[in-house]
């Protein structure tokens, strides 16, 4: 029982604390008090029934608990009163502390955290969706660009081919025109050359005849030559 002194001191402190707090705890402990009085009535019965065994017990506890209790202590009605009182007091204080201070605070902490976590998760999901969209847009752009490049290449090729074809056609047309012109000129030259043949032939015949026979009238020579030409032409 050496430690009892120090315990009593801490106890006195605790008790003063408690009475302080207890003042505010009345409202919360009302229900308990009701129960307490009810129980108190029952206790009176018990104490009367217990009779002088209780007295013996009192002496035992006061002496430092050396003697074995006459009543099984957990059922001993003599202790009920103070236990009920202190239980009501302490539990009332506990309830008050919990419902006023501790629980609202923890609830607030949890709420803040839940909001924060949910907000962050929603933000993460939003960013993820944005990423998806960006990827999609990028892909779309890429496909578009590729299609455009393809189109450009295609159109350029077509253009160039058309251009080539056009130029070739032009050159060919030019060439054929020139050829036609040349052919016409040849024809003309040939015709004109052919038209000069009888002239040359009559001249030649005139000079030949004049050499051989002296002068002859040009008119007869000419008619002779043309007759010959006509003959050869007919003979052909």
């Amino acid at each position: 029982m050496a430690g009892e002194l120090s315990e009593t001191i801490t106890l006195a402190q605790a008790e003063t604390d408690l009475t302080h707090e207890g003042e505010g705890g009345d409202a919360a402990t009302e229900a308990d008090h009701g129960a307490a009085t009810e129980q108190g009535a029952a206790t009176d019965h018990g104490t009367e029934a217990a009779g002088h065994e209780d007295a013996a017990l009192h002496e035992g506890t006061e002496a430092g608990g050396h003697a074995a209790p006459a009543v099984f202590p957990p059922f001993n009605p003599a202790t009920f009163g103070s236990q009920i009182l202190w239980l009501a007091l302490t539990f009332g204080v506990l309830y008050l502390l919990m419902s006023r201070f501790a629980l609202p605070r923890i609830g607030e902490i949890l709420e803040v955290r839940r909001d924060r976590v949910e907000g962050d998760l929603a933000e993460a999901d939003r960013l993820r969706q944005k990423t998806d969209q960006a990827i999609e847009a990028y892909e779309q752009d890429l496909a578009d660009a590729r299609a455009k490049a393809h189109g450009i290449a295609e159109s350029t090729r077509d253009e160039i081919r058309k251009d080539l074809d056009g130029q070739r056609a032009k050159v060919e047309a030019d060439l054929s025109k020139k050829m036609a012109a040349a052919e016409a000129r040849i024809q003309e030259t040939k015709t004109s050359a052919m038209s000069h043949v009888d002239e040359i032939a009559s001249d030649t015949a005139t000079s030949l005849v004049s050499q051989l026979l002296g002068t002859v009238p040009a008119k007869s020579v000419n008619s002779a030559v043309s007759a010959v030409i006509k003959e050869t032409q007919n003979g052909n």
Binding site: D17, D44, H52, S82, W86, T90, F91, L97
Partner: peptide, 29 residues
């Protein structure tokens, strides 16, 4: 007379009730 009425005392049981409340409140707060 001895043994009648309801005795009110600060007991070891009360001490531990107080300690219990102090521990809970102290810890949580």
């Amino acid at each position: 007379t001895e043994g009648s009425g309801v005795e009110i005392a600060f007991t070891n049981s009360a001490l531990f009730m107080v300690l219990t409340v102090l521990v809970i409140a102290g810890f949580l707060i």
